[in-house]
Design a protein around this nucleic acid. Structure first.
Lengths: 345, 345
DNA sequence: GTGGAACTCTGGATCGTTCCAAGCCATGGT
DNA sequence: ACCATGGCTTGGAACGATCCAGAGTTCCAC
């Protein structure tokens, strides 16, 4: 270094490897080894280098390291579009868990934004500029556009959500078994003595919706209960949830309702409010996602809680393997949700 | 402009500047100029280089560029700790808006995690490794630890939240005038004919809490209404909101309640639920933050909505200036919230 | 005491980009 | 005819790290 840096920790330019090397009286490479392969150094050298590192507050420059190793230690995550319902609340909890899990293995999360109309927007630029080591894809239920595209570009990625439309996809994935979720929700209501249990779900072309619905049907049939006239399918919004509830309450007078989402459950609550029915006393309701709303509305909505923290950890684990072994092909991981019981049932 | 996505180049290594230069028959530097200073090139050269860029799907390598220019085009944002209440829902909306606003000026957001017990954890590493160009700080109301520390490290940052405890801080900030929010909330209730309007807020040592409370007091006094016996201060949780509501409903029988947060408002709802009082008919409630919960609970909670999208845009604008002019000292920006009226009032 | 393996450490090259100073070429004024 | 000017382009150096191949030490067996 032509110009010696001012040793204090408030210098303008951060210290470099060369600065540390000079202070410790060793070569640059030795300092690099001290950081990345400490066992290559003799104990006393290591101590000396460590001292210098501490003294200068040295931290390897990310850009330089990244350039040389072709690894940024960043995971790309596209910001999901804001939706009307409660679904994004769940996503936010996931993002949080993921950032936390990733931090433990030295990865940070690069959030990016993409035009909601184009599911691929944003990925390309980051991929081409080698800004991230891998992606986490979260919208597999919208059809595997993103995953097939990423695969064709040989990008590394994992998905939160099974590959619905490509059963032979080879990327690692983690998902939550929400058919099972619907099942335990329904069984919970049966245990509480209900037998006329209605289903308010999504349209037939929603893969997620049919999945959840199957759990309700399975539980009902297992217990010898009829499902005729008890199912309705609609949009995932409060107003359509309310409409569906109004219709089904008039027609078949169920004593309990299982909803495919907390958003629909809130729609039901609106119907009950109008009819001056008391939630949890006059009628039982169970939702999905265990959103903030379900947790706070009096008297609390019983809801199927996806284990997002665990999902995030599994995804990070898969990412680590994937980045260590490029050819890594993991079996998908299916997690079981739990039911959080509250006043609504 | 549009880069062909499936562009035939599916080679392992992305194309570099040198590749483009060779194809276009110019030097590396000329390609670099084509990307960064197109007006330095003669029109025909520029066209030729652009062709080559498009053909190869070239995108500058971020690490290399970052190393050379000492700018990563990343903004660091520490993931706020998950809280019990509805506050994080607001934060999530903010993060979303911020990512979107940042994307428009070519910045991405680096989310990182820090030990909730240490407000400084995480910043240091990113700063030392020059991983981000700047930070966005969001917790200024917890006391300016982060901002003073960042300032002492000469880090660039902007804050969402005024510098409460350091009136002479020089960093750009954006905040929402929530005293004004409380004022319009209270006035809205007065317009609706209420005169016994209670306040359920936070403890006296909460700066944010006192701020909001002052708006309520101001509105009440302006309209010649007494506030005696109508205020209560507690924790920001549902259970304490309920307890406070129970106490105040028994003691002074107000006809309307203004709550310092949607979380407290939900506590009030629990109290009403137990007393079999109808929200919006027997009693009016107004909350703060316009969270998901306020939006969805029947019949909807009237709530003070902070303009997070605008705040995000202002912050990005300030960041741009700050990064362009290191000595930039912006005046703080104070935004006015609006009241979203729903069934609860 | 010599050869060789194992252990430490080093200097040069390299990753892909931008900065810098200089070079080339046409133009126009004298 | 010549030099200064300005527009356009270029090769070499630098950013700060790691990879690689080789050099210097140590240690032990024969």
């Amino acid at each position: 270094m032509a110009v010696p840096r001012s040793g204090g920790h408030i210098s303008a330019a951060p210290p470099t490897l060369a600065d540390v090397a000079e202070l410790a009286g060793v070569s640059r490479q030795t300092v690099s080894n001290a950081v990345n392969n400490p066992d290559l150094l003799r104990a006393d050298t290591l101590a000396r280098v460590q001292d210098a590192i501490d003294k200068l507050g040295y931290q390897p420059n990310r850009a330089a390291r990244s350039l040389r190793t072709r690894a940024s230690h960043l995971i790309g995550l596209r910001m999901p579009a804001l939706q009307e319902g409660t679904a994004n609340a769940m996503m936010d909890r996931f993002v949080h868990s993921f950032v936390e899990a990733a931090a433990e293995t030295g990865y940070h999360v690069l959030l990016f934004y993409g035009d909601p109309a184009d599911p691929l927007d944003g990925y390309d630029e980051l991929l081409r500029s080698t800004a991230v080591d891998a992606f986490v894809v979260t919208d597999t239920h919208l059809g595997g556009q993103q995953t097939t595209w990423l695969q064709s570009r040989r990008a590394r990625f994992v998905s939160f959500g099974r590959p619905w439309t490509q059963p032979d996809a080879k990327h690692p994935w983690v998902d939550v078994d929400l058919a099972y979720g619907a099942e335990i929700a329904t069984e919970h209501l049966i245990e509480r003595g209900h037998s006329k249990i209605a289903w308010i779900g999504w349209h037939k072309d929603s893969l997620l919706g049919e999945e959840r619905r199957s759990g309700w049907i399975h539980a009902m049939h297992t217990h010898g209960l009829s499902t005729t006239g008890l199912a309705s399918r609609t949009e995932d919004s409060i107003s359509s949830g309310k409409a569906a509830a109004d219709a089904i309450l008039d027609e078949t007078e169920p004593t309990a309702l299982v909803c495919a989402s907390d958003t629909l459950a809130m729609g039901v609550l609106h119907a009950l409010f109008e009819r001056r029915l008391r939630l949890g006393e006059d009628i039982a309701v169970v939702g999905f996602d265990d959103s903030q709303v379900a947790q706070t509305v009096p008297p609390g909505i019983t809801s199927v809680r996806p284990p997002l923290e665990e999902a995030a950890r599994e995804l990070v684990k898969a990412l680590e393997e994937l980045l260590a072994t490029p050819s890594y092909a993991a079996p998908g991981v299916m997690l079981k949700p739990a039911l959080t019981v509250r006043g609504s049932s």
